[in-house]
Write a protein that binds this DNA or RNA. Sequence first.
DNA 1: TTGTCTATTGATTATTAGAGAATAGTCTGT
DNA 2: ACAGACTATTCTCTAATAATCAATAGACAA
Lengths: 131, 131
Amino acid sequence: MPRRRRGWAMNGHHGEHHSQHTPLTISLLEPTLLLLISQKERHGYTLLNDLEQMNMGTIHPSVIYRTLRELEELCWIQSTWEMDQTQGPPRRIYSLTPLGEEALINWQHQLELHQKSIDQLLLMFKSNHSE
Amino acid sequence: MPRRRRGWAMNGHHGEHHSQHTPLTISLLEPTLLLLISQKERHGYTLLNDLEQMNMGTIHPSVIYRTLRELEELCWIQSTWEMDQTQGPPRRIYSLTPLGEEALINWQHQLELHQKSIDQLLLMFKSNHSE
DNA sequence: TTGTCTATTGATTATTAGAGAATAGTCTGT
DNA sequence: ACAGACTATTCTCTAATAATCAATAGACAA
């Protein structure tokens, strides 16, 4: 999982088949976490897998845990320790707060706008090709 | 133009009508610049306006100029000084290199993938609402 | 008790974004 | 010729974020 820097869009054109992630993916991390948590309470460790099973490659655990803590500082999610014997140490269970639900709605709007921007860009690409 | 920090998606829900930009917008800056330059040679100062006239709010000039220099370091674009009497100091005219054209094609693929991710997220939003 | 898997945290570094000021050429009006 | 406005680019500094790596720790099996 190397650090991506400016120009990353040019790497990975010799058979990078195993899941990668890009700055674009990272930009969707926050809303994706909120969305997953809004569906049902989750803890960080399962979110690692959940994210991988969606499109978004392998994101470093510390990035995910940090983001979760930051979302909690914003009071968008809240956590409790689950001591139920699972198969490991106690885990922090996150759930969405009312404020988080609001935030999620704003995210939806932002993503719709972003989607339009990308559509527009991709159209420009096509008209470029047809010249 | 304040610095956006974690949680920015929650700001601006009391009538922010004048063009803003978000980290999402910034993530499209690089490919947009390449695309605009691929259409025709341009210099930084016009790109400021071009970007504004597309969807992407007001981005601080220093961000755009820096990005252009970095793209030039990558040899994706190249520049010459245009001394033609315009109405100001000489300006740096950027054009796309062959490497830049390759990069642009990779960007197109990345954006298509990104678009799918967002579509998927927005679908999840909708099925959340209908529950 | 050693090792493996589950689970989270913290320290440190690298990279990027943004504010703001500095520099400079051109043009218009006085 | 000088001031002020507009065009055009660069540079420095700070704030914020991403990534790596190491540390901690419980549960369980050999």
